[in-house]
Nucleic acid binder design. Sequence first.
DNA 1: TGTACATCAGTGAACGCGCGTTCACTGATGTAC
DNA 2: TGTACATCAGTGAACGCGCGTTCACTGATGTAC
Lengths: 233, 233
Amino acid sequence: MTERPAVSIRSRVRAEMIESIKTIARAQLAEVGAANLSLRAVARELGVVSSALYRYFASRDDLLTALIIDAYDALGEAAESADARLDRAELRGRWLAICHAVRDWALAHPHEYALIYGSPVPGYRAPTDTVGPAQRGVLALGSILRDGVAAGRVSEPTDGRRPPAAVGAELTRVRDLAFPGIPVGLMARGIAAWIQVLGTVSFELFGQFNNVFADRAAHFDYQMNVVADRLGL
Amino acid sequence: MTERPAVSIRSRVRAEMIESIKTIARAQLAEVGAANLSLRAVARELGVVSSALYRYFASRDDLLTALIIDAYDALGEAAESADARLDRAELRGRWLAICHAVRDWALAHPHEYALIYGSPVPGYRAPTDTVGPAQRGVLALGSILRDGVAAGRVSEPTDGRRPPAAVGAELTRVRDLAFPGIPVGLMARGIAAWIQVLGTVSFELFGQFNNVFADRAAHFDYQMNVVADRLGL
DNA sequence: TGTACATCAGTGAACGCGCGTTCACTGATGTAC
DNA sequence: TGTACATCAGTGAACGCGCGTTCACTGATGTAC
């Protein structure tokens, strides 16, 4: 128990307290939504007076930010570890694994998903700490394309439509920053594919498929296979 | 002024009052979001006591429902009238017109867009009155595909991937209900395209493109052209 | 055309709640000598 | 190893707000004869 260089008991208890607060807040989220997340309700549930929470989070927005970062990280982690389970050469399998990991996580944590991919919480402004975690998902898709390009199995689409100059310049900048080695046209298709994944999950979660599709898993799998065809995976 | 068979002055004033309430509520929406839409605040702005609103809407949820229906109708109307301005044979032009109409409307009414395509309002359950208006947008896309099929210019994709049986059955049912004359594989591509439109708009509106793309109109136009290629328009 | 009655809009008070944040404080835990 | 002081967690009261909904009511507008 005491093999670590003595992390003070106080700071360990503090870390546990922060976790408890976030866990309870996540449960609240599911009941009332982000816009109505209440510090007092969290404190009540935790059996503590509401002002006590200010020892851990400077404000309600700070707590929200922590939940948002955690959600991006959890979704990214789900995608990454689904990807990691497969052979690097199985491009289509990896793509489908990521798609289903995203959908499964979203179905298991609908309110956290809404927090990051739904309408923004009114009055809340995201600080820059969220951008790193927010990228993990799409970067996993990028790694598939990069492996495919490196193996000569995936390449710039040949169907001819090149981005106009202004768009091409922006795509190049994004490529150089985050997706080295991927031709810009292919990267544009990758971004569209990622939007398709999240768009389809959002449609399902936000009720657009009500009374339309019943077997949503099968429909999703089919659509993601069509996207894979398109990407050449 | 009095050529109609005497719509009573009272009912005309009543209709105007309902419009005023909705207009003020839409403005509120933009400030505090749907979850915090407050009847009392609307009443205050209208210069009326809060209980007076109950003559017009039975509850806060009823007011929300009215706003949701209006939003679907406004978006559908924008798409339909953009489509109607073009020659029926201009399939690609019609598609792009609809895409841009959707995006333009969403940018002009971000909170109403969030109301219909963002995270659901917690505790709110949509009644069935919303399903008709909700379909107008995607039906406009359907009419392009139908015209293309009728003219022999658009057809079932030949790239081979057919939906599995369970999905095919659901697609067939949806097709027979709402998209007569369109082969199911093509319809599936159409649904994916529609998801791509709204997914891209949502990404832009909900902040996923922050620090990524600056010229969003150009990027959107490019991506929608890629989708048009895919659909064979 | 005039009167009697019914309908409806809006009032104001009340019920029973909720919230985020600040502040001075007590008492327990950790640290330095 | 023991003591003195500093740090920190949590309390409880308060400030100044907000909300949806109900109800008995007044007074104006509309309708039927």
